[in-house]
Design a protein around this nucleic acid. Structure first.
Length: 669
RNA sequence: UGGCCUAUGGUGUAACUGGCUAACACAUCUGUUUUUGGUACAGAAGAGUCUAGGUUCGAAACCUAGUAGGCCAACCA
């Protein structure tokens, strides 16, 4: 292994700096704090990968903490699912913890804060309080209850805890600043009354702490060194620090390390949604079969689809960590799973859209069991036998009566190799009255040493077993379905995200087990679905193979599929070539400059003034581009273009430029 | 009439904290090999780092202003 210099992301830089400034390495501690109100999805995997990845990198403990402060939304089912998913990804947590474990400690601290005049009980309605809060651009006003005496506050807070008041009548608020430009600092709520059964504490409590009060203090109690979360919590940081610093005063002897929160940009995947609420809607409205539907971006969905922990971890590693908004192309995820499965999945043959081939010179009753390599990428994978006989299926797509030379597959009069078997030649087609092909009549040749361009997969009809094959397309037709302000994300649903077919498989697949993964040769990677039984096999298509042939075909796809932007710059207009010359112009030796100049002049003949004008406002420092534009402009002027204000401005500015070449070119006019 | 954050090829992330021709991966396109139009290998194209000023011998990085995008007004997390 060569010494790999891996560049650090900004969080690792922060940690390195803290370490350099004297933070002992053994104080490093991280956490992943999901709320158990839904299933984990690929977006969470980034947060998981960051915190657990840091734990692995620095050999530091990582806690799994369930942020369970809202009993109205949380359930044990989700706790179990979350634990299963994280374990499946291959991460190990140090401690399994719950925010609800800290309810008593939090309460005690809150009492201390009341005693110090840092918190008070408010007794207004939520509407009134909302009004007092102000807006981002308008300061708030103080609550009339803000100056209650310590004694009164204490009595009311104890009453709240004792269940003396109905929900909604009182709240505990931190006394900070109703004029703070950060809305979260305007006397945030610490506790609300809530008569709800909690999945862990039962009915012990009827007041529940809010996120801001709970989260940072839980970090503090666990002595987390770096509390990592996504960008939308950035505004919370000021409050996080305020609560932390106050509580630190009470407990610094016992808990000496004040944690710090840092934020990173969350993961967005193209053509999918990440919001738990929206995913729940897909489940509830029956758009998908459940949280683990193979089209879902949930971890359980990806698992069922055939994604491996390795592929997902690799993906997260490649995606990186930064602070800017991003949309990662699904092709990266697909690359990761292909790369993984290419090494591990055994190759088999399956025909999903069959057309019958009869090998007329092969005896009717004969059958042969031919040897086939399981995986050429893996020497230990071994071999298996596949049956061959007179009648086989190939893909309908793999035959054309006539085709161009670029078509490597079977055509009339043409030869093709059958994978692991013989070379066949197509002689005739039999059609029904509609002109649809019923069978292709071929002859085979036992000499397999011949060189032929195409190799097809196939399956012996007599020996084939059938299976249900589920193929998936993206769930949404829009690159970023939930970012449209006018349209509901449901409007972008792809009506054809699931296709079910009957496939004909080689008989070696008769006794597969749920979860097993294969490469159906030339088609893609498939795994055995949970619904599969020995009587009725069910396969999911995990992902297709890279297909450079499909790209060459014109693709008569339905229109919806075409809204993929794909701004490929294949055509290369004259103006863009000129721009490109411009970029390099000033760096070229003089003789080359002359050459490029004349090329620009030639190209300029094909350039319209309207293309040129926008380039007048090219940045001043891009003098190369300005020179190229000027050269082209001169050609246009010579050919009769009339001068206008924009042109004159551009020329005048060029004359005053620092760059001598530009000045020289400009002066020639 | 606010506060905070962000801006680097089509996409994502780098650039040892101000110093070589702005790097890597995906995507795209060429070749070579191939009993998978897969894999592997080789190569190409694509970015003057949002704009304008400034500081400096030197700026993607620092400063100022602008532009664009995002987040913030739940008794959610």
């Amino acid at each position: 292994m060569s010494e790999e210099i891996k560049s650090l992301n900004f969080i690792e830089h922060i940690i390195e700096e803290d370490l350099a400034n004297g933070l002992p390495k053994d104080k490093l501690r991280f956490r992943f704090p999901p709320e158990p109100n839904g299933y984990l999805h690929i977006g969470h995997t980034k947060a998981i990968g960051i915190s657990f990845g840091l734990g692995e990198r620095y050999d530091a403990p990582v806690n799994l903490r369930f942020d369970d402060t809202n009993p109205a939304k949380e359930e044990q089912e989700y706790v179990d699912a979350i634990k299963r998913d994280i374990a499946w990804l291959g991460y190990k947590w140090e401690n399994e913890l719950y925010s609800s474990d800290y309810f008593q400690k939090l309460y005690d601290w809150a009492v201390l804060m009341i005693k110090d005049g840092k918190a008070y009980v408010d007794s207004q309605s939520s509407e009134v309080m909302a009004k007092q809060k102000g807006t981002p651009t308008q300061v708030g006003t103080n609550s009339p209850y803000r100056d209650r005496s310590v004694e009164e506050n204490l009595e009311l807070f104890e009453g709240m805890k004792a269940g003396k008041f109905p929900a909604g009548t009182h709240l505990l608020r931190a006394k900070i600043d109703m004029k703070d430009p950060n809305m979260l600092m305007r006397d945030p709520i610490m506790y609300r009354i809530m008569y709800a059964h909690h999945h862990r504490t039962g009915d012990d409590w009827c007041i529940y702490p809010m996120y801001d009060w709970t989260h940072g203090e839980s970090d503090y109690l666990e002595q987390i060194s770096h509390s990592l979360c996504s960008l939308e919590f950035k505004p919370h940081r000021k409050l996080y620090d305020w609560f932390r610093d106050n509580v630190y005063e009470y407990s610094k002897d016992k808990f000496p390390l004040p944690p710090k929160q840092r934020e990173f940009a969350r993961l967005n995947l193209s053509y999918t949604i990440m919001s738990k609420r929206k995913l729940l809607r897909l489940v509830e409205e029956g758009i998908v079969s459940g949280w683990d539907d193979p089209r879902m971006p949930t971890i359980s969905g990806l698992r069922r689809r055939g994604y491996t922990p390795n592929s997902i971890r690799k993906f997260i590693e490649k995606v990186g960590v930064a602070k800017r908004e991003n949309i990662i192309d699904v092709s990266l995820l697909e690359f990761c799973i292909r790369e993984n499965l290419n090494k591990t999945a055994n190759r088999v043959m399956a025909v999903l859209d069959p057309v019958k081939v009869v090998i007329t010179n092969y005896p009717k009753d004969k059958e042969e069991w031919l040897e086939a390599e399981n995986n050429q990428e893996d020497d230990s994978a071994g071999f298996r036998k596949v049956p061959f006989s007179r009648e086989i299926y190939i893909e309908r797509d793999d035959f054309k009566e006539e085709a161009r030379n670029k078509y490597f597959r079977l055509k009339l009069g043409g030869e093709v190799r059958l994978k692991n078997a013989y070379i066949i030649k197509a002689n005739e087609v039999v059609k029904d009255q509609n002109g649809d092909i019923l069978e292709i009549q071929c002859t085979y040749d036992e000499d397999t040493s011949k060189k032929v361009k195409g190799t097809l997969h196939w399956v012996s009809i007599k020996h084939a077993i059938t299976a249900e094959i589920r193929e998936y397309d993206r769930l949404f037709m829009h690159e970023s379905p939930d970012s449209d302000k006018d349209k509901d994300f449901m409007e972008f649903l792809n009506p054809n995200s699931l296709t079910i077919k009957t496939g004909y498989l080689e008989p070696s697949l008769a006794d597969v087990e749920v979860g097993e993964q294969f490469q159906f040769q030339r088609l893609g990677y498939f795994n055995v679905d949970n619904d599969s039984t020995p009587q009725k096999l069910v396969f999911n298509k995990t992902v297709g193979l890279r297909d450079s042939w499909a790209k060459q075909k014109p693709k008569p796809q339905n229109n919806e599929n075409q809204n993929k932007p794909k701004p490929q710059q294949q055509k290369r207009s004259a103006i863009s070539v000129i721009q490109q010359f411009g970029k390099k112009y000033t760096n070229l030796p003089e003789e080359k400059q002359q050459k490029v100049k004349s090329e620009i002049q030639a190209l300029a003949k094909d350039v319209a003034y309207d293309d040129l004008e926008p380039l007048f406002c090219t940045a001043v420092k891009k003098s190369g581009t300005r020179i190229a534009v000027l050269i082209a402009l001169k050609v246009l002027l010579k050919n009769g273009l009339e001068e206008n204000e924009a042109i004159n401005d551009f020329i005048e500015k060029a004359k005053e430029d620092k760059n001598e070449i530009l000045v020289a070119e400009a002066s020639e006019i």
